[in-house]
Computed example of a mutant assay.
Amino acid sequence: MSVETYRTDEEQIEVLKNWWQENGKSIALGIVVAIGLVFGWQGWQKQQDTRSAEAAATYQSLLEADAAVENDSTKLSSAKHFADTLKAEFDGSTYAVFGAMYKAKYAALESDWQTAEQELTWVVEQKPEAPLLLQAKVRLAHVLLAQKRYEDAQQALAGTALGSYAALIGETRGDIYLAQGDKAAALAAYKEAKAELGKLENASPNPLLDMKIRDLESSSEDGADTE
């Protein structure tokens, strides 16, 4: 029976009093829980904002230290520290991926190919956004190439959604073929890379790629002349 069925205001008030005595505690508890959830969410959001700001500040410090390394090698230890911090303290974020990419860079500078490979493999496993993923794969291929692991280097580039990275990936494939001594395959890969580069709007010239093509074409012509 609803409250509206009672004939007098006094009866309605009495019913409301009884209802509150029976249900008031649970309602009050629900209100407290709801308020707690709101403040809990706000606290979590504030914590995330603080964490993001800290990550951004650390990344900026990394960029500054990395830029200084070119003129002052003593800055390398600072750059390494910031890269380590990004990966260790901001796991699950894009900043951690950036940290790993720079850790790989510094390892490669010291010819520590194993560490560079581990860091780049970790990045690939995180499946970041396409640009970062493709950068990591290309760098991983170069690290494997430095170790003369040619098949692994080619495999690192397999299954990629090429997009704007098609030219870079094609050139990298050419480098691998050339290191293996397969000049014909290298020349074909370089020419494919140049064709992909030509498809891009406002693409910057790649004089090194042009030089590679000229050298292989010249080598091919010289070989034909001696036959």
Rank of each mutant, 00 (worst) to 15 (best):
A68P: 00
D72S: 12
T74S: 15
S78C: 04
A79C: 02
F82N: 06
A83F: 02
A83T: 10
A83H: 07
D84P: 04
E89T: 11
F90S: 06
D91V: 13
D91M: 14
G92R: 12
V97S: 07
G99I: 07
G99C: 12
M101H: 05
Y102T: 05
A108Y: 05
L109W: 11
L109N: 15
W113H: 10
Q114Y: 11
T115K: 14
E119D: 11
W122E: 02
W122Y: 11
V124G: 04
P128K: 12
P128F: 09
E129M: 12
L132R: 07
L134I: 11
A141C: 06
L144Q: 12
Q147C: 09
E151N: 14
D152R: 03
D152I: 00
A153W: 00
Q154A: 10
Q155S: 14
L157I: 02
A158F: 04
G159A: 04
T160M: 11
L162S: 03
S164Q: 12
A167I: 00
A167V: 05
I169S: 02
E171S: 06
R173A: 03
G174A: 02
D175G: 01
I176V: 07
I176T: 01
L178H: 10
A179Q: 10
Q180E: 14
Q180T: 09
G181C: 07
K183N: 12
A184H: 06
A189F: 03
Y190T: 04
Y190W: 05
Y190C: 04
A193W: 00
A195W: 05
A195N: 08
G198T: 07
G198H: 08
K199R: 15
K199A: 08
L200W: 03
S204N: 09
P205E: 13
N206L: 02
P207A: 10
L208G: 09
L208R: 11
M211Y: 07
M211R: 10
